[in-house]
Design a protein around this nucleic acid. Structure first.
Lengths: 344, 344
DNA sequence: GCCGCGCATTTGACCGGTCAAATCGCGGAA
DNA sequence: TTCCGCGATTTGACCGGTCAAATGCGCGGC
């Protein structure tokens, strides 16, 4: 470990070990090409001097920044989950010896110039996209320029294939399975609380359709309502509308944990017991899910797998693998005790 | 804007404009040294070729990575606020033409080697520390090696000055003011709900002491209870203990928004009306604060100012300014309508 | 008319690595 | 014995900028 002061360079190590600079370079990048005796000698010199190669110099020579760009969403909105994701993504990127570069950009087409600059300056090698929206302009734009990227989330283009590799969690399947399991637990009136129509981005629509399909398959006719804002309060009002029904639901599938917590508060306000009188589920397994009394049954995204898959897809130049759909895991807690075999 | 293909270099621009490479460099870094005629000529060449200097090459020559390191906290815990902070910080760093580099590190002393590596490889120029804990080892370690950094949050060292510059929000003052304003609104029994003793890190203790001081100054004897976990449920139980008191509080100051929401749920469960029967406040103005019915009165951190100050402190080599204490702003909402002049 | 000065511009070296081609040394085949 | 081949090592050039010193040149002063 170096003491403070000037950094140690490769040539200093070479001099110290009595070899040429390239040999030192080989010791680091291709040890198998180096004679074992020399290898040990150089390695002890590296150790003695506390040498670490300069990432910048290496980047210049190899023409690889070693950085993956990630754009923080403009409005810190449904970011309860993004926090976990960012952590997992950073770890996954570090596994490959690179690092995450964070940046901000305006929404929509204007933001594209930010992406363009990062590429033009060769600040990053590739991008991870998230917070994708329907008709997201970034994918096509980046793909058209030959910029590497991988997308967390689909863009659900109107027609044709989505440009570039993507990873997503199958919200459709997860919600359909929730319905199936709630049905198996005896529920016959299963409602859905979704994001307002305006915020009906891909993931929200996907989950809604999963719930619909689950109900249809079982011959159930559930009611779906929408929160007028992405808030607990909005969800509480939506839940109120459901519970005011002459035939109120016995189970409510919410599109997110935040909305589920709002639903829970309305359920409790009416003196009903979550997990007994009304079962409630959320989505994301965010910190809210373990924060409410009894816990919130929710769908956990396979965050680590999402992250590692994204990183892998960046490097897979070939269009062999275009999209990966992962399945979420239902985590049963008190608000909907699906794990217990008790029938209602 | 370049089409795809090889990147444009400074020498190409020089050739195109009929000047030497250094002149092009001057046009970019010191335009005032260049003859106006030449300036225009070179600039149009830059425009025509879509030239952008390579950040890597520049970094190598100037020995500045142009990157600021930020370590994501290990457990995505009280991160409801960190999300906003990270966004503001990224923007502030970009203002100075640099970028944020994200990384992860183990907690405690082990994590120091990660910091060491980033410096040794010259991957980053400086660090922004957050999620500081009491007796945080990082500050002294970094300062001792002459590594630049700025800390969001104090470490409250047992004695002596905290090494290196820091920025923090005065939780003490904010909570004291909450008490004062609640008192002015007619409240006489003002309780506090804090994090469990074990999680009693700096910020939590600071806010608690502010509440204490506020009460003491007004001759109030409030009760403080602690949530056994950083969850709404834990806060609800804590609030229950308070409300079971023969002389229950009429106002409850919670140490965070999450706990405040838990308190609110307990208040509502008892049929009491927040903002009428019991006033409740939180801290951070996170997305939860606008998510509950009527809104949550809370303390908003001056996030943009925190971020820009941190970035400024990084560059201020001189120890002239060692710490900056900013004040949070109370945002009154329905859970404690401090903005309305109605007395209780 | 010569000198010195200041501004604009250019040149050579350098940052700290990597790549590709050249060199060295040694054992086995001819 | 000579030559070839091959693994280990070295050399020169290069990545794309910046720094510092050198050059060229127009102008006012003596």
């Amino acid at each position: 470990m170096t003491e403070r002061g000037q950094a140690v360079t490769l040539r200093q190590v070479a001099a110290h070990a009595g070899v040429s600079r390239q040999t030192v370079s080989n010791v680091i990048n291709a040890p198998q090409r180096v004679d074992p005796v020399t290898l040990a000698k150089v390695r002890s010199a590296i150790e003695a001097l506390g040498y670490q190669p300069s990432r910048t110099a290496r980047s210049l020579a190899t023409r690889q920044a070693g950085l993956i760009g990630y754009c923080l969403a403009g409005l810190p909105g449904h970011s309860l989950y993004m926090d976990q994701f960012l952590h997992a993504l950073t770890e996954a990127v570090e596994e490959t010896g690179r690092h995450m570069l964070l940046f901000t950009a305006p929404d929509g087409d204007q933001g594209l110039t930010t992406y363009a600059n990062l590429i033009a300056q060769r600040t990053v090698d590739a991008f991870i996209l998230s917070d994708t929206v329907d008709e997201d302009p970034r994918h096509e734009w980046l793909a058209g320029r030959g910029v590497r990227f991988a997308s967390f989330g689909r863009t659900w283009p109107r027609q044709g294939e989505q440009p570039g590799p993507w990873v997503d969690v199958d919200g459709f399947a997860a919600c359909a399975e929730l319905v199936t399991r709630l049905h198996a637990a005896g529920h016959r009136r299963i409602a859905f609380v979704g994001w307002g129509k305006r915020v009906m981005m891909g993931a929200g629509a996907d989950r809604l359709r999963g719930w619909e399909a689950g109900c249809r398959r079982l011959g159930l006719s559930g009611r779906a309502v929408y929160s007028d804002s992405d808030s607990m309060d909005g969800a509480a009002h939506a839940a109120a509308a459901l519970l005011d029904d002459p035939e109120p639901p016995t189970a409510i599938v919410a599109v997110s944990d935040l909305l589920a917590v709002g639903v829970l508060s309305e359920v409790r306000r009416r003196g009903l017991r979550p997990g007994h009188d009304v079962w409630v589920t959320g989505f994301d397994d965010s910190l809210l899910a373990t924060s409410v009394e009894g816990g919130l049954t929710t769908v956990r995204q396979p965050t680590a797998e999402i992250a590692s898959t994204l990183v892998r897809l960046i490097d897979n130049a070939g269009p062999a693998e275009t999209g990966v759909l992962l399945t979420g895991r239902i985590v049963a807690r008190g608000s909907a005790p699906l794990d217990q075999l008790q029938q209602r």
